[in-house]
Simulated assay, not measured.
Amino acid sequence: MTRLKLSDINSNTPVKLTIEIPARLHRRLAEYAVALNGGVSEGAPQPSALVAPIIERFIAADREFARQRRNAAKDVASGR
């Protein structure tokens, strides 16, 4: 079984992360922001504001990752 090497981050303090994404993806995020705003571009969230919620949702929906987390928690509880 693959074990993830990162430990839990216990702080909810925001962390600034700088990434580069393709222009095509940025346009898609902008389109998505407009769609979230009911099809109106005025007042739509910035594409950068969508990245964290999208990643959180992706991780929450990843069944294999959830299974690995459950198994890791069992291993810790059993002293392995």
Score class of each variant (00 low, 15 high):
H26M: 10
N12D: 15
A66T: 11
E31I: 01
R67A: 05
V15H: 01
D62K: 08
L50A: 01
S48E: 09
T2D: 13
R24Y: 07
I19L: 04
V15L: 09
I59L: 14
P53S: 08
D75P: 00
N37C: 03
A52Y: 02
P14N: 14
L25I: 10
A60C: 04
D8Q: 14
S48Q: 10
H26F: 07
S7Y: 02
K16S: 09
K5P: 02
R57S: 11
R70G: 06
P47E: 05
P45G: 05
L36I: 10
P14D: 14
A33R: 02
R57C: 00
R3Y: 09
F65C: 10
V15A: 06
V15P: 00
D62Y: 08
L17A: 15
L17M: 15
N12C: 12
S78A: 14
P22I: 03
G43S: 13
I19D: 00
V40A: 15
T13M: 04
P47A: 04
R27Q: 09
G43Q: 07
E20A: 15
L36P: 03
A30V: 08
E20W: 11
H26I: 02
G39S: 07
I59W: 05
E42S: 15
P22L: 06
R27K: 06
P45S: 05
R80G: 04
L29M: 08
S78V: 03
K74I: 11
A52N: 10
P22Y: 05
E20M: 09
E20Y: 13
N10C: 15
D8N: 13
R24F: 11
